[in-house]
Design a binder for these strands. Structure first.
Length: 564
RNA sequence: CGGGGCGUGGCGCAGCCUGGCUAGCGCGCUUGGUUCGGGACCAAGAGGCCGCGAGUUCGAAUCUCGCCGCCCCGACCA
């Protein structure tokens, strides 16, 4: 492609809307433009990079037996009512004139199609996938393309008659995803994740570490353990028992509201303080107890209670239920609450907690003796430097961007949609489903987050819009123009993807700056400086390293570089 | 949805507090000339419902009210 002909509006200055490197560079390098919040137009260069990613996706999905579909983005609203997903908050954009919705994902359509045509266990397994635009009612789009209202997703769906079949397809996806992200030039890791509102029995997320990431993950510094903070297991030991075990006693704690203030006021160790956190679980009051300053993990709490909605109780509700305010709540003689405690408190005694009267606490609490508990669970959020649950090495807690997510869905959607098969015994069984997703724009954006410098993007050759950026340094030297044109033809005929900066109105310096901004892996520079010695300059974008080669050797040199 | 910021030629911004001359600067764009290996220079130009709507005023980019849009933090997150 000649740069004089292709639409690549580069920007010298940073657009005011962009705050993170990938967003800034995707705008500056002319890959895309924003139409409205969370919605982007991809320009030729940006779309070429996306197509490179999509090609990798197709190759790897085909390699594990995937069949490519194209499902409709417009869905009847009724289909989503059937699976009870129509009213999930912030999920679905709808078209009111026709009772249609814009599909945010495609379990429903897959289930509909399977219900219609998959009749027998002999029709399974199936692996269906597509690469398609998705729509979501994001309350706050942000970070450029990392969280949009419209985006392209590779989504696949496995259909199996048996749990073993699902496990196989799930594993095949996990391996395919690793190949996809490796081929895309990303440094990534895999974490165990919460299935959340998707339901199902297991899920893993593919993550790219980044300060701008919205997810928090715990990674072991010693072994392979890595998990989303929502489910990362705590390995901190229990606080155990103290030898003295006197009877309960009230202590006055005037105006003490926080755990730290209580520890200071009583001169007590945090380990002997049982913190109360009050929630509603599907509307019903729940008290969760934690050690000292441990932070409650809401995902774990929900799981401990058998799933469902958990949310903090309002201060006014709390007062009317207990007669006390937050800060003075405790588990002893608390009526009307389900009470769960963190594992660290199992069988502990000598504890201090609220007395359910303002400005009063209880001491010498023995959980075995004094508290009617509904169970111990891992409820706390892990923190940096804690021991890993697998190897006791130090955990590191960091931020990450989710680039892929795989789920073992089970039968939730097939049951809702009556997608069943007859098994060997003629019994009707719901199809066992898995679903697997990769955000295409996120791969491109994360790649730029990981591969850029002060001058611009540094593309990996696998997803670079072009492999080679050919520059004619000065367009008023006949020899330069002639040589550059010959090279352009030669490289293109040699099968390389070449972007040729043949602009006549732009200075050499300007072209060099643009080339570094656009970031193709190799720059080939034709100029009088090199031609004096009958040489062409080849520059490697990532390192800035330059090699002078003879005209006839340019193609083979580039092929060697690109193969390495 | 809560908090904060912003909205002025294509892009980046100043002006607004303290109302008033022809709305200004840099980049980009057009034309001509000189340059020509790290975002060249000179000259002459084009391009503005100052987000939208009400109001206050002799007079509003500037003050008041309402609305819309965009960004950031938080909440939320199949």
């Amino acid at each position: 492609m000649r740069l004089s002909k292709i639409f690549v509006p580069t920007l010298k200055e940073t657009p005011s809307d962009a705050a993170i490197p990938s967003h800034i560079l995707m705008l500056r390098a002319g890959l895309m433009r924003q139409l409205t919040a969370g919605v982007y137009a991809f320009l030729p260069l940006g779309y070429r990079a996306m197509r490179k990613v999509m090609r990798i996706l197709r190759e790897e999905m085909d390699a594990i037996g995937g069949q490519e579909f194209h499902f409709p983005a417009l869905n009847p609203e009724s289909l989503w009512i059937q699976t009870n997903r129509r009213n999930i908050p912030n999920l679905i954009l709808s078209i009111k004139e026709r009772d249609l919705v814009l599909a945010p994902t495609h379990e429903e359509v897959v289930g509909w199609l399977a219900a219609m045509h998959i009749q027998s266990y002999k029709d399974l397994p199936q692996l269906w996938y597509q690469i398609q635009t998705k729509f979501r009612n994001e309350p706050r789009p942000r970070s450029g393309v990392l969280r949009g209202r419209q985006f392209i997703m590779k989504d696949s769906y496995s259909l199996d008659a048996t749990q073993d079949g699902l496990d196989l397809q799930y594993e095949a996806h996990a391996e395919a995803y690793k190949r996809i992200f490796t081929r895309s030039g990303l440094k990534f890791f895999v974490v165990g994740a919460s299935s959340g509102a998707m339901g199902g029995t297991g899920s893993q997320e593919f993550m790219v570490e980044s300060e701008t990431g919205e997810d928090t993950v715990a990674i072991c510094s010693q072994c392979s353990y890595a998990a989303n903070i929502e489910i990362a297991k705590s390995a901190l030991p229990g606080v155990g028992r103290v030898s003295e075990n006197p009877a309960l006693a009230e202590i006055a704690t005037p105006n003490v509201r926080t755990i730290d203030a209580l520890a200071a006021f009583l001169d007590a160790p945090l380990e002997r303080l049982a913190k109360s956190v009050v929630y509603r679980h599907d509307g019903k009051p729940v008290l969760a107890l934690l050690v000292g300053n441990d932070q409650l993990n809401e995902t774990k709490l929900s799981a401990a209670l058998g799933g469902g909605d958990v949310r903090p109780m309002d201060a006014s509700e709390l007062k009317s239920l207990t007669g006390a305010d937050g800060g003075s709540i405790g588990p002893v003689n608390l009526k009307g609450f389900k009470i769960v405690a963190d594992l660290r408190l199992k069988g502990a005694n000598g504890l201090i907690s609220g007395a359910n009267r303002n400005d009063m606490h209880l001491k010498n609490i023995d959980f075995d003796r004094d508290v009617q508990l509904d169970g111990y669970h891992d409820l706390r959020t892990v923190e940096s430097d804690e021991p890993c649950v697998q190897c006791a090495g130090a955990l590191r807690v960091t931020h990450a961007i989710e680039i892929g997510h795989i789920f073992k869905l089970g039968t939730k959607y097939s049951e809702a949609l009556n997608a069943t098969v007859l098994d060997e015994n003629g019994q009707s069984k719901p199809i066992i489903m898995g679903s697997y997703g990769i955000g295409v724009e996120r791969i491109v954006a994360c790649h730029i987050e990981q591969n850029h410098d002060q001058h611009g993007i540094v593309w990996d050759k696998a997803i670079a819009p072009f492999q080679v950026h050919l520059i004619a340094a000065s367009m008023n030297s006949k020899e330069t123009v002639l040589t550059a044109n010959q090279l352009y033809r030669m490289l293109a005929e040699g099968g390389l993807e070449v972007l040729f900066d043949d602009r006549a109105s732009v200075s050499a310096g300007f072209k060099f700056k643009d080339a570094d901004l656009l970031g193709m892996p190799f720059q080939v520079i034709v100029g009088e400086r090199g031609l004096k010695e009958k040489k062409i300059e080849v520059k490697r974008r990532a390192t800035g390293e330059r090699t002078m080669v003879l005209f006839d050797d340019v193609l083979t040199t580039l092929r060697t570089f690109l193969a390495s």
